[in-house]
Structures are given as structure tokens and as C-alpha cells.
Computed example of a mutant assay.
Amino acid sequence: MMKPLSILLLGTLMSLNAHAADQAVKSISPDRLQINGTTQATLGLSQNWVHPSPQVQRVVIVFHGRLRNAQTYLRSVERAANQSRQRAKTLLIAPQFLDEKDIAAHRLPDSVLRWHANDWMAGEKSLGAKPVSSFVVIDHILKRLSDSKLFPNLKEIVIAGHSGGAQVVQRYAMIGGKEDALLKKEGIKLRYVIANPSSYAYFDATRPVAVDAASCPTFDTWKYGLNKLPAYAGKETPAELEAAYVKRDITYLLGELDTDPEHPALDKDCGAEAQGPQRLARGHNYFDYLTKRHPEGLNQRLVEVKNVGHNGDAIFTSPEGQTALFKAN
């Protein structure tokens, strides 16, 4: 029996996406942010952020997935902002975590940050003489945004990501927060939107799927658990990290159709498989895990996006995505 054309096309698209993840990116985002004076992070901006911007009341920081296609994600949230009629008062930022091959292909200077493979998803350090955690890049963005001289009317920052980018956001929400006090002092609210990640970091060894620690010794190590945290995490205990995490304003966006256990971009490591067979199940399992641990309630919510699979543009431009990005709950 011949397969339907739609299935064949979907398989071809997935194969192309898997291949693209192993290639140098076609587009390098044009903007730079100085980190520690000697290195530069790469990012895209919807408008200039060098001069005072009194019109900006909200900032959305969106993170790409493993394809490192930051400009694609920037265009997606631009469409969502236009549809929500929020574009005029919103600054959109799309950081780009480059790979070694991107630097070589585009002949970028040594000062531009680059990571090995997908290390940036877990907050690991960049390559080079002066390594920098990908989470430090986020800290520097937030610090700049807290400058009341540049953004005197900024009231809210939304940190959002899809797929691999959602892994960044979930882990940063867990062990990040070095700029929280400064943002609070300036009266700036911080929210998180986590869309369709392959996996989550758990606070203990509990998992929805039985796991044999002998055959999967890394199931509870970072980025799946809190063992062997990166240096960025500091000295907070797991209990302290959890207490801070559950207070964060987080929306988990899950595509109703993101249910393929063989998706080429799905994490199939045993540590991820212990969380469920596919992304939709893993998201529900994680939220159930949190609600059981915190029956007093969470400052968080899970939203399923109907008729959407593993598609960042469809997630963020959906009515549910627009609400999560641009309308405080």
C-alpha cells in the first residue's frame, strides 16, 4: 500500500530538518551584545535598543531550537505581536547560540561566542579562551533591559522558547535568576513561556516511566535532574531551587499533535525517555509531577494548543500563544 502524499512530505521535511541541524546556519543575526567586555553574543532585535525607548512597555525574548534559526523565530513573534496589536510597545529579542561550524562558515571573529553542539541548551559554557555560560548571556540581556534610562516604561519581560529553546527557558527558570532583584527593584515583571521541549529538569529522582539507574546512570543528572549542576548554578540547594521555581510565572504551551515518539528532533536519551514517550506526554507528566509536589498551588499553567504539532511558528501565532506572550495571566 502506498503511503499518503502528506505522510511522505512530512517525512521528507523531517529528514531535511534533521540534516539542517548538522549544517552551518544560513543566517547570522546582525546585532551584538558585549559580554564581559571581550566577547560578543549574537542576537536579532525588532528595533534599536541603544537609545532610550520610552514606547517599550514589554520585551519578549524568544529562543530558537537546535537549528539555531534565530531570525525565523524573531519573525514568528513579530507576526504574533502584529496579530495581538502589541508590536508598537513591544521590543522583541532573539538570541542566537552559534555552533563552531557557524563561526567557520561565516568567517566570524574569535570574539563571537560559540558552543559545541547543543551545550547551550543546558547552560553550559561556550568554547574559546574565555568561556561563558549561555545563561550568562540571558543575564546580560536582562541587566540591559533593567536600565531605566533606556527603558523608563518597561513593565514586563517574557522569556519564551520552543523545542530546544524551551529547554533553555525551563532550565534557566530553574537555576537562573541572578537579575531578579534588579528587575523587581525597577518594577519589571518576569514571565516564562515553555513550548514543546523534548525534556525537563526534575527536582528529585521520581519519573513517570520506570528507569533502571544501572542501565541509565545519567537519568537524574543535569539537564534531566539536579545532580552535577553546571558551575553557573551556584550553591543553592535543590529545595531552594524548587521553592523559587514554583513561584515563577510560567506557561507551558504544548501542541496537541506533538505526539510522534519517532520525531527526528525528539530527545531519545534514556533520561528523556524516562519522562514519557513523546513531547505532549512529557509535558503533561512534568506538570502533573509539579502539582502533586505542590498541592497548595502553582503560579503556573499548562495550555494545550489544538491542531498544532511540533511547530514554533504555529505555537506562538496561535490564539493561545499570543495570550501567553502578550497578555499577563
Rank of each mutant, 00 (worst) to 15 (best):
L254G: 03
Q275P: 01
V169W: 07
P264G: 00
Y224E: 02
P264V: 07
L241I: 15
S198R: 06
I250P: 02
E240L: 15
P197W: 02
G187V: 11
L182R: 15
L190M: 10
D212W: 15
D220L: 03
C216M: 15
G225Q: 05
T218E: 08
W222C: 01
L183T: 01
S198Y: 09
A173K: 09
A233D: 08
R279T: 00
Q275F: 12
K178L: 06
P277D: 06
A201L: 01
T221Q: 13
Y252F: 13
V209Y: 10
M174A: 07
W222N: 02
P261T: 09
L266V: 02
P261F: 14
K247W: 15
R248F: 10
S215V: 12
W222A: 00
A210H: 14
Y224C: 02
A213T: 14
E236H: 15
L266P: 05
V193T: 05
G255N: 11
T259Q: 13
P208D: 00
A274K: 03
R171C: 00
E236M: 09
A214T: 14
A195I: 11
L257M: 02
Q167D: 01
I194W: 10
G187Q: 15
L253T: 08
Q170H: 14
Q167K: 07
A233P: 05
L257V: 10
T221W: 10
A233I: 12
A210P: 10
A274P: 03
Y252K: 05
N227T: 12
K223M: 09
A231K: 14
D220T: 06
V193H: 03
P230N: 04
M174S: 07
G276Q: 06
E242S: 06
P264F: 12
Y232C: 00
L182V: 09
A210D: 14
E256A: 00
D204H: 09
K268R: 13
S199K: 03
K189C: 08
A244R: 08
F219E: 04
D269F: 09
Q278K: 03
D204P: 10
L182Y: 12
E236A: 00
Q170N: 13
D258R: 13
P277V: 01
R171G: 01
D260N: 11
E179P: 14
D180H: 13
D249G: 01
A272C: 04
E240W: 14
Y172H: 06
T259E: 09
Q278D: 10
C270T: 07
D180R: 14
R279E: 00
G255P: 11
I194C: 07
D269V: 07
L190T: 01
G276F: 02
A210E: 12
G255I: 03
T206C: 06
G255S: 12
D249S: 07
Q278R: 09
E236D: 11
M174G: 05
R248L: 01
K235L: 08
P277H: 04
Y232N: 02
K223I: 04
L254N: 07
C270A: 00
G225E: 02
L183I: 05
E179T: 10
E242T: 07
Y200A: 02
L226K: 13
